[in-house]
């Protein structure tokens, strides 16, 4: 269980140059970031490299975190996700795109999710869940593939075997509908 208030304190102490707080921050959060990086990058060596980059960045930029940017773990996960996206843009040509049916299931309602997993999520997960279910199948699939695999429009088009323009509109309509639903 990751305590948001404690992580916020640790980030503040890290920003002030406290190496012990930084170590504690690493111990409390690195497994979450590493899980994300392995899932997105698919290779342990890349994930380790990226994890290292992330925490160097956190050490240097901890002062840019503010609670109004969101929960501290969300902020850390975002740092990791953007790092993964940047790496994928550079390295993706080396990664083989999964064949139809090979990739992990993207079914959204995930019964295997433990309460502990839930504890690291930001507020409004139930709402997001409901809103995702309200999307059309292609829209939902496009959004989830982009989020978990870091696919660009082009990669989505290839993966979903659909024209680029069609895929772009699935993503955009999906995001618009999500927003309408989240704000309703």
């Amino acid at each position: 269980m990751v305590d948001a208030a404690h992580l916020t304190q640790l980030l503040a102490a890290t920003a002030a140059g406290d190496q012990r707080a930084f170590r504690e921050l690493y111990d409390a959060s690195s497994s979450h970031l590493f899980g994300l990086l392995i899932r997105m990058l698919k290779r342990r060596d890349w994930a380790e490299e990226a994890l290292q980059d992330c925490f160097i960045k956190v050490w240097q930029k901890a002062e840019t975190y503010a609670p109004d940017k969101g929960a501290p773990l969300t902020w850390l996960m975002t740092v990791a996700r953007y790092r993964a996206l940047d790496l994928l843009r550079v390295k993706r040509p080396e990664v083989e795109m999964p064949e139809e049916g090979e990739e992990q299931s993207l079914a959204f309602a995930d019964e295997t999710q433990s309460p502990e997993d839930g504890a690291i999520e930001s507020e409004g997960i139930g709402r997001l869940d409901d809103c995702m279910k309200g999307l059309q199948e292609e829209q939902r699939q496009s959004v989830l593939l982009a989020y978990y695999e870091g696919y660009t429009h082009h990669e989505l088009a290839e993966r979903l075997n659909a024209p680029l323009g069609t895929v772009k509109s699935w993503v955009r309509r999906g995001l618009s509908r999500l927003r309408e639903c989240l704000e309703s």
């Binding site: 899980g35 996960m77 975002t78 995930d110 999520e121 978990y148």
Partner: peptide, 11 residues
């Protein structure tokens, strides 16, 4: 970032 973070539980 905060809305889509709801998907992070799957990692």
């Amino acid at each position: 970032e905060n809305r889509l973070a709801g998907l992070n539980g799957r990692f």
